[in-house]
Design a protein around this nucleic acid. Structure first.
Lengths: 226, 226
DNA sequence: ACCTGAACACCGTTCAAGT
DNA sequence: ACCTGAACACCGTTCAAGT
C-alpha cells in the first residue's frame, strides 16, 4: 500500500489576515519595500495570488496593517507609563525611531497614510503626556502635532537613507554618512557656506542622539512658552 | 500649389532635460503622482517613450529634478534676505509649506531622496540664519537638522493628505479634516482620551498656522537653550 | 547625436472556475 | 466560504533600427 505523500507545497492550515500580515512583515524586513509583491507573498504562503484578496482589500491595506502592527508593538512597550511625562515622551519618540531603524518600510508607510491607526497611536501617547506636563489646552493640539510631525520627519528621512544604503549595497551607516559629507565638501562655498561648515559633523554625528536633541529642543520650547 | 501642412504632431524643436522636467511638472500638478508615466510624458512631448532616456537616467532622476526645480523657486524668492533671521526662517518654512501645498508630489519626493539638492537648499537657508541668530557651533547642526526634519514631516503629511483627498474626489480641505475628526470621535474613549479631546480642534484648525506654531516652538526652544 | 517604438520583464488586481 | 491561477491592463526600461 502506497502512502499518499503530498508532493505539492500546498498549505494545510487556513489563511488569515494575521498570517498574511505577519508574512508580509517578514518579506519587508528581509528585502525592503521592493520585495513585497503579491506573487512573492503568495509563494511564501504556499497559495495563489488571488487568495490574498479574500482577506485583504489591496496592497495599501496590507502595508497599513503591517505598519500598525509594528507601531502597536512600540506603544505596548511604553504602556501606561505614568512617570515623568517628559521622559515618557522621549521613550515613545526613541521607540518609534528604533522601530523604523529596524523596519525602514514603516517610515515610508507612516507617510502614505496620515492620521491613520499608527500615527494616531503615537499622537495619543505624546499628547497625553503633554497634558500631564501641564501644557494649557490652547496649545496642546499644536504642540502634540509638532512633536509627531518631527518624529515622522526624522523617521521618513531615516527610512529613505536606509533604502538608499540598501540599494547601494552598503549596510554600514557610517559609510553612508561619509558619502553624504563628501558630496557636501564638493559644493560651491559661496552658495553653501553653512552646509560646507557642518559637513564634518554630518560625518561624525549619531542619528539617534541628534534625533533626541531635536525632541529636547521641542520640549524646551514648550516649557519656555509656559 | 499645396502647402505642406504637417499632419503628425511630431515636435520640431529638440528635446532637452529642461523641457522634459517642465512637462513632467505640468503632468504632476494636473494629475498627481500617478499620472506621471513615461508613456504619458512621451505623448505630451510628441515623442517616443525611449527618447526621454537619452536626457534623463530614470524616473527617479526625473522626479528629483522636478522637486529641485520647485524648491529652488522657493529659495530664490527668499534670496539673500539679511533681515531678522527668525523672520527669514519663518519665511523659508512657509515657502516650503506653500510650495508643497501647491505641488503635493514634491512632499513625497523630498522623502525619497534625503540630503539631495532640494533638501540641502532648505538646510542651507535655515542653518545660515540660525548661525546669524547666534546659535553656538556645538548645537548648530542639531538645531538646523531638527527644523528641516520638522518642515519635511509636515510637508510629507500634507502631501499625503492632499493625495488622499484627491483620491476621494474631494478638493475641499475642510471636508477632509472633518472626516478625520469624525473618525476620531468614534475611537474608544478609554484608549484614546487625548485624541478624542482634541478631535474638535482637528476639525477647526488651520494647517498653515499650526505649522508656523511648530516652527515657533522650535525657535523658542533654541533660544531657551541659549 | 538623437530619436523611434516594439518588446521585455515585471506589477496589482480581477474573476470564472473549482472545492 | 474560501481558494486557484490564468488573464488583463498596466508599468519602467531596453535596444535594434532608423535619421
Amino acid at each position: 500500500m502506497t502512502t499518499k505523500a503530498p508532493r505539492t507545497e500546498r498549505r494545510t492550515d487556513a489563511l488569515s489576515k494575521g498570517k498574511i500580515v505577519e508574512t508580509a512583515i517578514q518579506i519587508l524586513d528581509e528585502g525592503g519595500e521592493g520585495a513585497l509583491t503579491f506573487r512573492a507573498l503568495a509563494t511564501r504562503l504556499a497559495t495563489g495570488a488571488g487568495a490574498i484578496y479574500w482577506h485583504v482589500a489591496d496592497k495599501n491595506e496590507l502595508l497599513a496593517a503591517a505598519a500598525d502592527d509594528v507601531v502597536a508593538g512600540v506603544m505596548a512597550q511604553v504602556g501606561d507609563d505614568a512617570g515623568d511625562p517628559k521622559a515618557t515622551i522621549r521613550t515613545i519618540a526613541l521607540g518609534v525611531f528604533d522601530a523604523i531603524d529596524a523596519h525602514p518600510w514603516v517610515g515610508a508607510q507612516l507617510f502614505r497614510e496620515p492620521w491613520r491607526a499608527a500615527t494616531v497611536q503615537i499622537f495619543e501617547g505624546v499628547g497625553g503626556r503633554l497634558e500631564a506636563l501641564g501644557v494649557p489646552d490652547a496649545g496642546l493640539f499644536d504642540a502634540a502635532s509638532a512633536i509627531v510631525f518631527y518624529v515622522l520627519g526624522v523617521a521618513g528621512q531615516n527610512a529613505a537613507n536606509a533604502r538608499l544604503a540598501r540599494e547601494a549595497g552598503r549596510t554600514d551607516r557610517g559609510a553612508f554618512l561619509a558619502s553624504v559629507a563628501a558630496r557636501w565638501d564638493q559644493l560651491d562655498p559661496a552658495q553653501h557656506p553653512f552646509v560646507r561648515k557642518v559637513a564634518s559633523r554630518m560625518r561624525d554625528h549619531d542619528d539617534r542622539q541628534q534625533f533626541l536633541a531635536g525632541v529636547d529642543l521641542f520640549l524646551a520650547g514648550i516649557e519656555a512658552r509656559g
